[in-house]
Design a protein around this nucleic acid. Structure first.
Length: 869
RNA sequence: GCCGGAGUGGCGAAAUUGGUAGACGCGCUGGACUCAAAAUCCAGUUCUGGCAACAGAGUGUCGGUUCGAGUCCGACCUCCGGCACCA
């Protein structure tokens, strides 16, 4: 091989063309091979790849390529999460159709992904906005309608007044729309829901089986599901003297603390509770109605925001409820701190043991009665801890758990209540009032009601050639599109014009990859590939997407399409890509952000940053925090430019080397330079080795000490890199180990026949170890080393354990725990031999002289600690 | 407020099971090459003292367990993330 310079741009395109021509990454089901399904979260085609994508997809690609070299049948697919709001916003802004904008973005981003050399099976690619894809989603939905898993109800929703759409609770951040930033309002409109709460218990318990999911994700999901055990019981409406009114139905309440029921001093209904109007007395009606109006004008997000949480507002209804425990009446209030959507929308209030009730009782001059004895030094308000029941008649003297159990049994024996488990999780509202989404396949007939679109009329196709009039959905604005006939009675009927939440598409895409072209949602091929062996994506999806994804998998299972219970066995959540921020203050006091590329930093003689200035004018800029790359902080780095300048391998190498995958990755231009330098050095060293001519066969038993040492290092490195990539997913330390080995190989100057044979083995190992991370350069070097076939399809290097055996080890000698010497010994020495070797070391003698050896700790081949005193 | 996670050189980080703290990379300092610069190569680089050998200190703070603690335990501080009236 000629000693040509490292030219990544030329070799990468050459290698990619070959992979493409040979269909290297296309896979089919092969029952004789162990499968490995490596999935990265599909991107939204926003316009261009950002560094977060590069990081995410490089991690998945490294794992895929490693597993492939282990001999597995590896599926790594890619698709586009193509529906969604930004396409509509862009359409309105640029006066184009969302479809056109989306497809153009997909074409550009596909090219970018291909340029990065990801080993995707592109034959399985799809866009979720394609009718071939959402057809099956619609069919699944109509079947779920028939099964009762979906339902329609009027519901208070989060209305985003800017985007003119309903948001899921999860899409509301601090009371504002997650995209528009507008303050969210409350509205009641008919919505379609999926009964994810029916699966709450399974979704919760399933987390215990997901041993290879990050604990943080599982904790977040557990909290989101929010399981609470307690009791639900009914209280009758009564007058002030406790005389019950048999005309009014009882009010069920849920509590986790039935043991505290003797401390109930009032009860509360949510303002939306259906019984409010019925029970409110004439003299309270006016204030109750005024209160309900004021609550309605506040969004739920506002009511529950941090400041709102402090103040608990409410009014007396004038009615009373009969407490079955005390046989006495308690006043009934309505208050905004009781939520209609949780439990029964009604509570028994026990201010002595519940801080919220305490706050409300204080604000409304309601009595407080403690029923659990707080510790003597207790100076808090409501007491929620362990303690003995007091003021509770037949519960007095019992601990919390026993009292709770006895109270629950009493409720059951009286026939007024029962054990009950409640979840914080709410059903999934899937209706969106937007255009660019999958049409909900429902027909409304004036006589027959809401009916699923018959299967032979699916898919309900979303028209793509549309013009936008403001933000209103074109299919809502078009009087013709919705016209249809009732599938049952044939009279004029209307289509649903709402579309699905886009989380619907991303909830089953992973399965569709496994059945490309099937004339059904899925076919048997899906059960070959599923579950996903490794899923890679951002932690921001810890709750929403990953919960829906698990839920939908169970729906597919229950529909008989899949055999597994969970969609993915192993999950890796990569950290953010962050960079420094720089800014200046505008004359009006606002801040404008300057891209790091336009800034030069000043360093002191130790390399510490002491200031920064703008390259354009040399004037200082303010150094801000290191933050997630974003448009708003103008600290993004365009991967495209980097690939054009350094090549894909350098970009991949840097993003895997700078930090472990689950931590945030701090951008560094000089770090990228360093990665490039390493590849160039690797190129040069391997080229020089090849240029020195043919190599003799390695005789591993005939090596001298220097050769053995190098060979041991090679096999130690193979072992470490295999473990780091395969088990630990710490690609940064894998790369560091290869770099270290390369540093040794560069210094190894033995050009004897066996010296070169050792080097040949070493370079062939290095090229394979690096090939998952930097596949292009490794492909060329592998070929140059005279090996047949593509490195990406070659077997992963094997560890030769005999090469790792040491004939000398370094034993660390400590005196009283302080390092005093190192001695070279044969491995496996006993304590006596170690002591003999240690006690001749001058530095050991210096600290043990004239002292009695009190104890010796010997960890074979590692450490000897001599304790004197 | 509740629930997670983290805190180690000038910087990104490493130390996997309680056993040599700082691997690897960046930056910086000095040197070689060069008319010069860039690139490249070599050496040094936790702090303090010392020409050096070496010594002392050192993993957010304060305590504890241990022959031995970045790692385990207790209390606290700071930062990041999630949830936030869920009865």
């Amino acid at each position: 091989m000629e000693q040509s310079p490292y030219n990544p741009l030329e070799i990468e395109v050459r290698v990619q063309t070959r992979w493409d021509k040979d269909k290297t990454y296309q896979v089919t089901e092969d029952p004789d091979m162990e499968k490995f399904y490596c999935l990265s979260m599909l991107p939204y085609p926003s316009g261009a790849l950002h560094m977060g994508h590069v990081r995410n997809y490089t991690i998945g690609d490294v794992i895929s390529r490693y597993q492939r070299m282990l001999g597995k049948n590896v599926l790594q697919p890619m698709a586009w999460d193509a529906f969604g709001l930004p396409a509509e916003n862009a359409a309105i802004k640029n006066n184009t159709a969302p479809a056109k904008w989306t497809y153009a973005n997909i074409d550009h981003m596909r090219e970018q992904l291909q340029r990065l050399g990801f080993a995707y099976d592109w034959s399985r690619e799809f866009a979720t906005c394609s009718p071939d894809y959402y057809h099956w989603e619609q069919r699944m939905f109509t079947r779920l309608m028939e099964k009762g898993v979906v339902y329609r109800k009027d519901s208070e929703v989060n209305w985003d007044p800017v985007d003119q759409t309903v948001l899921a609770n999860e899409q509301v951040v601090d009371g504002r729309g997650w995209r528009s930033g507008a303050v969210v309002e409350r509205r009641s409109i008919p919505q379609w829901f999926m009964r994810i709460t029916d699966y709450a218990e399974e979704l919760l318990n399933g987390l215990d089986e997901l041993v290879e999911w990050p604990e943080a994700v599982k904790t977040m999901q557990r909290n989101w599901i929010g399981r609470s055990e307690g009791a639900e019981f009914e209280m009758m409406v009564c007058d002030a003297d406790g005389k019950t009114d048999s005309d009014t139905p009882g009010v069920p309440v849920f509590t986790t603390r039935p043991d505290t029921a003797f401390g109930m001093t009032y009860a509360v209904l949510a303002p939306e509770h259906p019984l409010v109007k019925k029970v409110t007395t004439a003299d309270c009606l006016e204030s109750v109605e005024a209160f309900i109006d004021s609550v309605r004008n506040t969004s739920e997000a506002d009511r529950t925001s941090s400041e709102g949480a402090q103040e608990k507002r409410g009014v007396d209804t004038g009615a009373f409820l009969f407490n079955p425990f005390t046989q006495k009446a308690v006043p009934l209030y309505i208050a905004d701190y009781v939520l209609m959507a949780y439990g029964t929308g009604a509570i028994m209030a026990v201010p002595g043991q519940d801080q919220r009730d305490w706050d409300f009782a204080r604000a409304n001059a309601l009595p407080i009665l403690r029923t659990v004895q707080p510790p003597p030094d207790w100076d808090g308000e409501a007491y929620t801890g362990e303690g003995v029941a007091i003021n509770s008649e037949w519960l007095d003297g019992l601990g919390v758990d026993d009292a709770r159990e006895k109270a629950t049994q009493w409720l059951e024996s009286q026939g007024i209540g029962e054990r009950k488990v409640n979840y914080r999780l709410r059903d999934w509202g899937v209706s969106r009032q937007r255009y660019w989404g999958c049409p909900i396949p429902v027909i409304y007939c004036p006589d027959c009601g809401a009916l699923p679109v018959p299967e032979d009329q699916l898919p309900v196709v979303l028209p793509e050639d549309v013009t936008f009039m403001g933000v209103r959905s074109p299919i809502k604005a078009d009087p013709e599109w919705r016209k249809t006939r009732c599938p049952r009675c044939g009279t004029d009927a209307e289509r649903e014009t709402d579309t699905f939440d886009t989380f619907m598409e991303s909830s089953w895409y992973y399965a569709r990859y496994c059945s490309p072209g099937a004339n059904a949602m899925l076919d048997e091929r899906a059960n070959y590939w599923l579950p996903v062996d490794q899923y890679v994506g951002g932690i921001e999806h810890a709750i929403l997407h990953l919960m829906y994804f698990r839920f939908y998998h169970k729906l597919l299972r229950d529909a008989g399409m899949l055999h597994s219970d969970e969609p993915a066995t192993r999950l890796l959540c990569q950290g953010m890509v962050v960079a420094e921020t720089y800014s200046r203050q505008n004359p009006d006091g606002s801040r404008h952000w300057i891209n790091p590329a336009e800034v030069q930093t000043e360093l002191d003689e130790k390399g510490k940053i002491i200031g920064a200035h703008l390259l354009a004018d040399g004037q200082p800029v303010v150094i801000g925090a290191v933050e997630k790359m974003s448009k708003s902080k103008n600290n993004g780095v365009d991967p495209q430019h980097l690939v054009e300048r350094y090549g894909a391998d350098t970009v991949r190498l840097f993003s895997m080397f700078a930090s472990p995958p689950d931590q945030s990755l701090e951008w560094s231009d000089s770090g990228v330079e360093g990665a490039f330098r390493f590849l160039r050095r690797l190129w040069f060293m391997v080229s020089s080795h090849i240029a020195a001519g043919p190599v003799q066969a390695l005789d591993s038993n005939g090596l001298d000490t220097g050769q053995k040492t190098i060979r041991r290092h090679v096999h130690d490195t193979i072992a470490k890199v295999s473990d780091d990539i395969g088990r630990r997913n710490t690609f940064n330390t894998a790369i560091a180990a290869v770099m270290e080995l390369c540093n040794h190989l560069g210094r190894f100057e033995d050009r004897s026949s066996q010296g070169r044979a050792v080097l040949d083995e070493a370079w062939k190992a290095v090229v394979r170890l690096m090939s998952p991370i930097t596949p292009h350069v490794c492909e060329i070097l592998w070929e140059a080393l005279g090996e047949e076939g593509s490195v990406v399809s070659t077997a992963w290097p094997q560890v030769d354990e005999s090469a790792r055996v040491r004939d000398q080890i370094t034993l660390v000698v400590q005196v009283n725990g302080k390092l005093r010497a190192r001695v070279e010994l044969a491995p496996g020495c006993d304590q006596e031999t170690a002591m003999t070797a240690a006690m001749v070391e001058a530095n050991v003698l210096r600290y043990t002289e004239g002292m009695a050896v009190r104890k010796v700790i010997h960890i074979a081949d590692r450490l000897l600690n001599i304790v004197v005193g």
